[in-house]
Design a protein around this nucleic acid. Structure first.
Lengths: 242, 242
DNA sequence: TAGCACCTATAGCATTGCTATATGAACTGA
DNA sequence: TCAGTTCATATAGCAATGCTATAGGTGCTA
């Protein structure tokens, strides 16, 4: 029951606090629980950390170091934007693995509490984006890009944490990630006009889809399915309703 | 000192809690503070709200209704994407005006606590994006787009709340906002290059048709036909690349 | 051994969220 | 008009919380 691997009490307190924080989902963790699990009495806690919040700050700091270490452990692939993607995914994964810790880190940010962590995280991402900027792949200043991407990254991670694990769809993450990266990257991607898809009616939309379908060879539907699909589409697009 | 405008105690409790929550930045607010400011004793609180968290939930719900009301008060401008921009800015402003309330709403989201608010906010944005989809301006399904945009919106707002008011730079917001909207919109790039950026016109048209069909109750197809039709449509509109 | 800094334990204080119980007010039906 | 019932508030107090004043071991160096 007690966390006594003969580590120094300071460490035992840190681990006990981290464990209780991680397991008791959202419920407040009392100092008595912590000290009991650590096999230590109250004054020891206050001697080492001064405060309950001091202890929690230490836990957060340790967790953040782990996070940073995870981000740094990747060898640069030579494709900076690809590294950013991995960084993003790593961030999300960290949040999903330790949701409680993550919520303390990024969910409870107040200007007087811990903007230092945010600044560090931003610096970490800016560092990577700098390589992309050097390679001429960036549309905006690396710092602005880093702040923007990190903000979206945090938002996505929080949303994913918010929904029950069974319904979590990581597509939200990849989609937002690629949207952000695309927006800051300097890739010259532009094409022809999208036809006349400006009207707002079922008919127009159906006609546009009909034309587009005939032009392209989509293999998402079998030929018999497609035949029926087109027939229905025709029925819709010749209806008077709007 | 006491909040007695002769309102019913329930209201006085709500207002007292909201005021204390808003002003005492991040510090825990005790029930005794609340009841004293409301000019009421403890059991009254528990009679009406059952719990401290029940009271706070009520405060959050009230705040959220205010937020929704603010979002709805805008007359649609006819340009759905422009409405989305206003919606985004409104969201950020709400968060900056009531940071503590916002942190409780979106900073402390746990799967068991309040995903309902997130769902409502998503629905609100999806509703607007549907108009864009009908007009053929959307690249992805409105629901996915709404989730993605809202996630980024929340992330940006949290980051802005995190930094001291004097250093707040709203450019982070506008930049991220436009990046997200650009990424989900079908305007600029389409058709010719369905490689990585910009979906084919088939997909855009299918999404538009899908949204239009759901909006209008076309009776050109029987319900079973429509079901299968929509399924195929979904298959088309989520295909990797046309 | 003595002194000293460091770390930990005993015991308890003030405050916290919450409640068992009782009192009052307002409305009902006769 | 008045007993009965329901709703709403108050009195007083409990267990748990964060924290601390004080004292008691440790291990060092001299």
């Amino acid at each position: 029951m007690s966390l006594d691997g003969q580590l120094p009490p300071k460490m035992r307190l840190l681990r006990a606090a981290a464990e209780l924080l991680a397991n008791s989902g959202g419920a407040p963790v009392s100092t008595r629980q912590i000290t009991q699990l650590a096999g230590v009495t109250a004054p020891t806690l206050y001697h080492h950390f001064g405060d309950k919040e001091g202890l929690f700050d230490a836990v957060v700091a340790a967790g953040f170091e782990e996070y940073v270490a995870g981000e740094r452990d990747f060898a640069p692939s030579g494709q900076p934007l690809e590294d950013i993607r991995r960084m993003w995914d790593n961030h999300v994964q960290f949040g999903l693995n330790q949701p409680e810790l993550y919520l303390v880190m990024f969910g409870n940010i107040r200007p007087e509490s811990r903007p230092a962590i945010v600044a560090d995280a931003e610096a970490l991402m800016e560092e990577m984006l700098n390589k992309a900027a050097v390679a001429g792949q960036l549309n905006v200043q690396p710092r602005e890009a880093a702040r923007s991407i990190l903000a979206a990254n945090v938002g996505v991670t929080l949303m994913l944490i918010a929904e029950p694990a069974s319904e979590r769809n990581l597509e939200l993450s990849t989609m937002t990630r690629d949207a952000m990266i695309f927006a800051v990257s300097a890739e010259p991607a532009s094409g022809a006009a999208p036809g006349d898809a400006g009207k707002s009616s079922v008919v127009v939309a159906a006609i546009a889809l009909n034309a587009a379908l005939q032009a392209s060879h989509s293999d998402q539907l079998s030929s018999s399915e497609l035949k029926l699909f087109l027939e229905w589409l025709h029925r819709i697009s010749t209806s008077p309703a709007g």
